[in-house]
Every structure is written in C-alpha cells, then in structure tokens.
Design a protein around this nucleic acid. Structure first.
Lengths: 228, 228
DNA sequence: CGACCATTTGATATGGATCAAGCGATGTGG
DNA sequence: CCACATCGCTTGATCCATATCAAATGGTCG
C-alpha cells in the first residue's frame, strides 16, 4: 500500500484539525512500535532526546504529553509541537535530531530502534509507505503551524484551543497540561499575551476557565470565526 | 538504501543552508523524474497547480523559479517556499494540494505522474526511501521557516538573503527573481519593511543593491551575526 | 515621451512585548 | 492546622517594532 488514501483533507482549509494518528494510514508503523517498542517512563520535564543527538529511535506516546522544542542561539525557546497519546514522533530523516523533546507531564513512551523500522521498510512496501505518510503528516502539521505564526494573537490562541480540543478529544473540556510559557513559545507570543487573550475569550464567553489549567470551550463558532 | 546517510546537519543550527537537491540522497527519485518526466513550460505568474486540486503529479524545476503559496480566508497570502532548478516539489502525502504553485519567472518544469512514482516505490525500496528522504527535507525546510517567523525583521531578511545565496549559488550575487511582495509574504513582513531592511543592510555595507532585483553580498559575517 | 507598475521613503498608528505589581494556588515547616 | 514562602498566572502601564497610510521616485514598456 503506497497510496495516501487515508490522509485527511478537510483540514487543508485553515485550522490544524489534525486527524488522530490511527486514522492517518499509520497503522502499520504504529503497530510495529506497539509490538516491538520498549515502554519507558519519563518524569515531568525530563528529556526524551536532545537536539543534535543521533536520531536512533522512533517514539510513540502512550500516556502524558511531550513537547518538541529548540533553543536559539540568543536564548529564545521555540516549541514546535506537542505530542499526545497515539502520536508518533522523532520521525526525522536526518541523522541528528533538530529539536529536543521533553515530557510535559509524567509520560509513558514506546521506543523502537530506527534501524529496526528502516530495515522492515526496506523489505515491506507498506511499512515504507506508512513511514512516508507519517512524515508527510508531520510536514502538514509544520506547514499549518507556519501559517499560524502569521496570524494575530487572538487568532493564534483560538487556533491553539481548537487544535488541542480536537486532538485531546475530551469533549469540550481541554486540560492544558503545559504551563503558559510552553503555550507562549508554541504560539510565538509572550505569556502575558496568552493570559490576556484567554481572559478576553472568557469575557466573550467563548470559553470558561474553571482553573487556569482547564479550559471549557463554550462557543466554538465564535472561536472558529476568529481564525483568519 | 533506506538510511538518511546523506542528509545534512550543519544546517541544524540556524540558517536553512539547504543542501542542493542532488546531494540530499534524492538521486533515485530525481533521476526518475528526469527520465520519465514530461517537460512543460510555464509563463511568468502562471499556475502550476492550485490548492485543493488533486495532487496527481510530482514536479522538478529545470529552469526558472516557482513559489508555493496559500491565500487565507481573510485574503492574506503566505508564500511557503521558493523552488529553484533541481528542486523537487509537490511531494505532499495528501490527496489534494494544500498550497498553490505558480511560476515566479518563465520556467521549465518536469512533471511525472505520482502514481508512476508510488508504484515504483512499492517495488523498489530505494525509491521508497528517497521519497521519504525528500519529504523529510521538505519537513526540515518547513521547520526552519517556522523558526524564521519568530525572528525580528532584520534577522528574517538576513536569513532570506543567505538562504537564497546558498541555493542559487551564483557566488555573491543574488538575483531576486521575485517581486518584493513575494519576499514579504515569504517572511511575514510588509513590502515596506523589506525595503527598509535592505536599505539598512546596504548602509551597513553588508550588501550592495546595483538594481533593486540584484543583491550583492558584501559581508556575510555581518549578515550571519544578525541571525538569532 | 508618457503611462504604469514596482520600489523606496516618510509620517503616523498600533499590536504585542516588556516592565512591574498584585493575586492565587500549592506545598512546607513550625 | 495554619503561617508563610514559592511559583505560576493575571492585570496594569509603558514602550517599541513593524504595519499602515501616503507620497515621491525610479524603471520598463508601449
């Protein structure tokens, strides 16, 4: 199977509305990691891998959340992605990781040797196809994030909430496991702006904030209308 | 061959310093397009493909330049990439194109049916590997662009010039084939800001502007020092 | 030569960063 | 169990980078 049949569209428009990993044609690779992967536990804020380290493994989140990030020479940090259960990450084609990865919360992660997967892929076209497909999904996500970074602050925050709601799928209630600083570094804004935008959305009763780490989406159409 | 051996690093740091397509392990796929591709000519500003159209072909630039872009609902345009001779583009895994592609200048482009490549890839692991690799390079480029969008205006412009100089490889002289608006939409800035930054770089004698479409890099270290 | 389009330059406006308190939870030692 | 320290979040005041608006200039093509 070397077609991209299962891949989304419907997302293309604007929001990242990413399709859950299981629906993305990733089953082969995902299952391989499931079967052959070693389960490792990571404490909150511990490192999964570091930028510039050899990229010898692929990863799949079982529980918890992971952030991929990079610190620039001038000390600014950019969070490129959050990975939630069922997401596969670390799929880069380069020999070294470009980003670092850390557990946002305590997390369980399946780890499989990259060489195991690539040698399977060399034998099995379906595996190779899925590897390609998953990388394509990551590309798609990255391109969406790129678009997001040209939007206004309210748009970025609204996009973020909708993205998280779609991916975590806990029905209206979005638990923000990460601190404000992570959100800020993901959206390219300051923590103060994140805070202000959330307050503004609450005033507009688009969302409710029972606690600062729990967001309830009260009015998605209002949020969607903010997307450029 | 299903290893990413040839893939860069050295870029990872900051600049996109992208390795020319031929050195990226893309030879198989690139050569396939070379052998099996139909050569098509596109006039300046004509469309190669449109967003949301079926992604039935892969492309390789022979001459000229191509821009990939997307217009958001609110009418803003984002240029996600410029493709120069030897670059392969249109590699998305999704069934429909997310971006549109247009010729920046008159261009010659090799076009090959995607199904041709994918059925080759289903037989030939090397082809599958190269497909993966090239998509990985596109991902890498996209991630670099993402980082770029969090930098200051002078940094973005300096990065852009260095990127173009590396990719066009015409030794110090960078012909900007695209109008300022394209640069602006690529860097997420206004045309006025692009203009001002170029002027500023000229005053700092980091560059010279014999005409507004030709940039001479006079002092790369100064440009590099601007990168965050 | 004149019209048109792209680029530069100048003046002003503004969104978001930064600086600086305040506030609220969470946890620790008395 | 409560006082207090700490950390993360919110709120307010100010500043600055870049957008936007508005001409002026230059380059290209009929």
């Amino acid at each position: 199977m070397f077609t991209a049949a299962a891949v989304d569209e419907g997302s293309a428009g604007h929001g990242p509305e990413l399709v859950p990993a299981e629906d993305r044609g990733s089953r082969e690779l995902s299952r391989t990691i499931e079967l052959m992967g070693a389960r490792r536990r990571f404490k909150r804020n511990s490192e999964v891998y570091g930028a510039r380290e050899p990229a010898d493994y692929f990863y799949k989140v079982v529980s918890g959340m992971v952030r991929a990030y990079k610190v620039t020479v001038d000390g600014r940090r950019h969070v490129s992605a959050f990975y939630v259960p069922a997401d596969v990450f670390g799929l880069e084609t380069s020999e070294q990781h470009v980003f670092s990865a850390e557990a946002v919360t305590d997390a369980e992660i399946l780890v499989v040797k990259r060489s195991t997967v690539t040698s399977l892929a060399a034998q099995d076209a379906a595996m190779a196809g899925h590897l390609w497909l998953l990388t394509g999904c990551e590309l798609h996500r990255s391109q969406n994030h790129m678009l997001l970074l040209n939007k206004s602050a309210p748009e970025r925050v609204a996009s973020f909430l909708l993205e998280m709601a779609d991916r975590i799928q806990s029905d209206g209630e979005v638990p923000l496991s990460m601190p404000r600083q992570d959100v800020a570094d993901y959206l390219g804004l300051s923590i103060e702006t994140i805070s202000r935008m959330l307050t503004r959305l609450e005033s507009a009763s688009a969302i409710a904030l029972p606690t600062c780490r729990r967001v309830v989406l009260r009015n998605r159409p209002v949020l969607r209308r903010m997307l450029a």
